[in-house]
Write a protein that binds this DNA or RNA. Structure first.
Lengths: 248, 248
DNA sequence: CGTTGCGTTGAATAAGGTCAAATAGAGTGG
DNA sequence: CCACTCTATTTGACCTTATTCAACGCAACG
């Protein structure tokens, strides 16, 4: 066992930094592309970046150079308002692309902050446009990714504009649940990586309201909450909250 | 005067349906491109569409084929909710591009509705991608347009998530004002094309609240309101409302 | 000149925010 | 491993804001 290996070991690092062998390729930028097309993306990402909880991958005002694909970890987009408050504009999980807000002005419009230790793929944007210029299917796929972000944001706008607090929380939990399923995790049991305050900021509610409504959902037998650990007991119950006409 | 013209008349129709001679080219898709590059866009738009007030240029669920650049008129993006309520997700004026939400799923996610008679340039999306594939600067410009939409939506999310009613209205009026200026109209005097209910829907408020706050702004000497006619009397006053720390 | 849709205003109410206090964990250093 | 600290969370009491319900005014239109 201590002798020289017979075969040269596979270069694991290379294997890992390449889209074609990434386990997230069904969710991430390569989604829907063929194997050959994905291989053409392999020149795109030559840097990974490890981030620790609380660190920013970019800050509002920074020069925009790259997009970031989440490999692992959980992130938020946020802006620090003049009065110091931290306004959250999104939560992001593996396979999602962050930083697209920076394209319009060549400066990032918000911070990208890690809520737990993680790793992102750095996608130099000029290079992405180069490859998209070559590979038409990538161009199209990238347009889809941006459009999806627009649709997602408009969904949040509708949530904020038309739902009451309970409905917002129900929608939030169901949305997280769906996104966890897509990543192979349990739909009904998960760990919130963000605080009540961050949830509230995102949903336009105060942290006390978030806490109270979690407690109420628990009393009603819809979920079980223990700090950041959530278990959904009755999906239909949460869905029913959404179905009823919104009031605001 | 009844004799044959000496010179063949200029084809006015053609002159008009082409980006390079469009008065909105500084605001619209061609923004920032050179004259030669803009000429390459001239094959892009071969259809204009007139719409009457209340008509939709597309509806949620329709197949997605084209983007629409507003030539004239005032539009809203909206979704009809299950309970019949009309949730507004955006207001759009000349030079802005509508329909980008459709790219992600090949179906429109919302309606594009005219708030007054107007005209849109139909941009077949497959063709746009073709031309973008040829003209790299257009590819980049289109990415900027999409990114701008993302930033704009996130701004609305922040407004809805962190501002109280008065602040939302103040921000709304200032935003309209800025967009009118960019189009050569008065910053301080304009006509609202939408109802109080539509404003409320967009801002997450009830129409009565919108009406009350307009009245209050008027009492405070910030604006003068007469039905849909608005005159901003003290921009600084409205701006001051935003500056103060948001409370919600 | 009535009808209809939109806007304004008032009074009562409910939803969520604010303030405050108690508790529970997670992380840290001895 | 334990004590200590700090932060996140929960819960209660009270208050503010915006909604709800309702009545009325105004302007456009056939």
């Amino acid at each position: 066992m201590s002798s020289e290996p017979l075969l040269k070991p596979i270069n694991l690092h290379h294997l890992k930094t390449v889209c074609s062998s990434c386990s997230l390729r069904e969710l991430c930028l390569p989604m829907g592309l063929s194997e050959e097309e994905i291989e053409q993306l392999d020149t795109l990402v030559y840097t990974r970046k490890r981030v620790k909880r609380g660190e920013n991958i970019y800050r509002a005002g920074d020069d925009f150079n790259s997009l970031y694909a989440i490999r692992s970890g959980f992130f938020k987009s946020n802006v620090i308002l003049e009065d110091g408050r931290d306004q959250v504009t999104g939560f992001h999980m593996p396979g999602e692309i962050m930083g697209m807000d920076g394209i319009s002005t060549d400066r990032h419009a918000c911070n990208g902050t890690a809520l737990e230790d993680g790793e992102v793929c750095v996608i130099p944007f000029a290079r992405l446009e180069d490859v998209a210029h070559q590979v038409r299917s990538l161009q199209h796929q990238f347009h889809k990714v941006m459009s999806r972000e627009i649709v997602r944001d408009q969904g949040v706008m509708m949530l904020l504009g038309s739902m009451r607090a309970e409905e917002r929380l129900a929608a939030f939990l169901l949305n997280l649940s769906q996104r966890f399923v897509a990543r192979g995790y349990s739909p009904s049991e998960f760990h919130l990586r963000m605080t009540r305050e961050e949830i509230g900021s995102y949903l336009g509610l105060k942290l006390e309201t978030v806490s109270r409504i979690f407690s109420k959902f628990q009393e009603d037998g819809l979920i079980s909450v223990q700090q950041k650990h959530i278990r959904i007991l009755q999906v239909e119950g949460l869905e029913a909250l959404l179905g009823q006409q919104a009031h605001r």
